[in-house]
Simulated assay, not measured.
Amino acid sequence: MPATLRARLARIGEAYAPHDHRPLDGYLVAMGAFGALAASLATAGKLVGQVPNRPAAGDVVLLSVATHKLSRMLAKDSVTSPLRAPFTRYTEPAGAAELNEEVRDQASTVRHGIGELVTCPFCLAVWVATGLTGGLVLAPRLTRLVAATLTATAASDFLQLFYDMAKKAAEDD
């Protein structure tokens, strides 16, 4: 990014949030990467001629639950912490095999912006949903299999939590 653009974004960021560090150029890089991903998937879908007029309702439900699970896994799971480690710092356990992490490296706005993205399951969801939707267009059988696995895992998570709550309630009686 040219120095003049970086300086201008820094001034805009300072005016936008004078009491809080907001990595606006980092966000621009993330938005540009997302735009490139979405455009690439759309172009690939058009080239193979597989873009449906509208997705099937079952696919929307399947991808919705799979998106929830995968974005949560990427942003919070202990096992995926090595993926987030270059951008975050561990702070504490968050229960049910999840972690709380804080974004590090305020000196690099791009790295800081990525850190915010990879620690936020809500933020990651649009990336995951776009990837899964692209996969549904380009490799529907494999994508449905992966999405079904993620959906089954999400259902299992909820059953595990429900079981723990029921067990604690029975012990309290």
Rank of each mutant, 00 (worst) to 15 (best):
D25A: 03
D25P: 00
G26M: 07
G26T: 04
L28P: 04
V29Y: 13
V29N: 09
G32S: 15
A36L: 15
S40Q: 08
L41H: 13
T43N: 07
Q50F: 05
V51C: 07
R54G: 10
A56K: 10
D59A: 11
V60W: 02
V60F: 00
V61H: 06
V61N: 09
L62F: 04
S64V: 01
A66V: 01
H68A: 09
K69I: 00
S71C: 03
S71I: 01
S71A: 15
S71F: 02
L74K: 07
L74V: 06
L74Q: 03
L74I: 06
K76N: 07
S78H: 11
V79K: 09
T80Q: 01
S81P: 00
P82G: 05
A85D: 13
P86E: 12
F87E: 10
T91A: 11
P93W: 07
A97I: 03
A97M: 12
L99F: 11
L99G: 02
N100R: 14
N100A: 07
N100T: 10
V103E: 02
V103S: 10
R104G: 15
Q106P: 04
Q106W: 00
T109M: 03
T109I: 00
R111M: 10
G113E: 01
G113L: 01
G115C: 04
L117T: 02
C120T: 14
F122P: 00
V128Y: 03
T130I: 00
T130S: 12
G131H: 04
G135F: 11
V137T: 15
